[in-house]
């Protein structure tokens, strides 16, 4: 019984936001660090100093960055300490949330986009 519990702990994690139990490795073998359903993550590694972080805060997805190779990177921000991290997007991530994040800035432009049409 305890053996099963340990196996579950090693191979899965529970999302800090939606509570979904997700496997630590994605279907294509890559390591997963965010929930595939709500894309939230947890602040476990410190990127300024390096090494593990004591923050443990929830990290919400805020933006999509594009690498030179064309791959999408998901940018998370810690809700407790405002640190930013970027991670590659997995194949089974929630496409609706990804697409919503990609078009979100265009829904609220700080200047009229019509002017760009005349360029």
């Amino acid at each position: 019984m305890s053996n099963t519990a340990n196996t579950l702990k090693i191979h899965t994690f529970t999302c800090a936001w939606c509570g979904l139990t997700a496997t630590k490795t994605a279907s294509d073998g890559s390591l997963r660090n965010h929930c595939p359903s709500c894309l939230h993550s947890q602040h476990v590694s410190d990127h300024v100093e390096g090494g593990p972080s004591e923050c443990d805060g929830r990290m919400s997805p805020i933006a999509i960055a594009v690498l030179r190779t064309g791959d999408w990177m998901l940018i998370h921000r810690c809700v407790r300490c405002d640190e930013l991290t970027s991670n590659p997007v997995c194949a089974d991530d929630n496409q609706l949330i990804l697409m919503r994040m990609a078009v979100r800035p265009l829904a609220q432009p700080p200047f009229p986009l019509e002017a760009l049409g005349s360029l």
Binding site: I62, A63, I64, I75, R77, L84, T85, P105, Q108, P109
Partner: peptide
């Protein structure tokens, strides 16, 4: 590397350092 909007509709730019990979907004 990216643009995102704050809940109040402000655009923010995400920068990534080319030499160490650090991110800032």
């Amino acid at each position: 590397v990216a643009v995102f909007t704050r809940p109040d509709g402000e655009w923010m730019i995400v920068h990534q350092c080319l030499s160490c990979g650090e991110l800032s907004s």
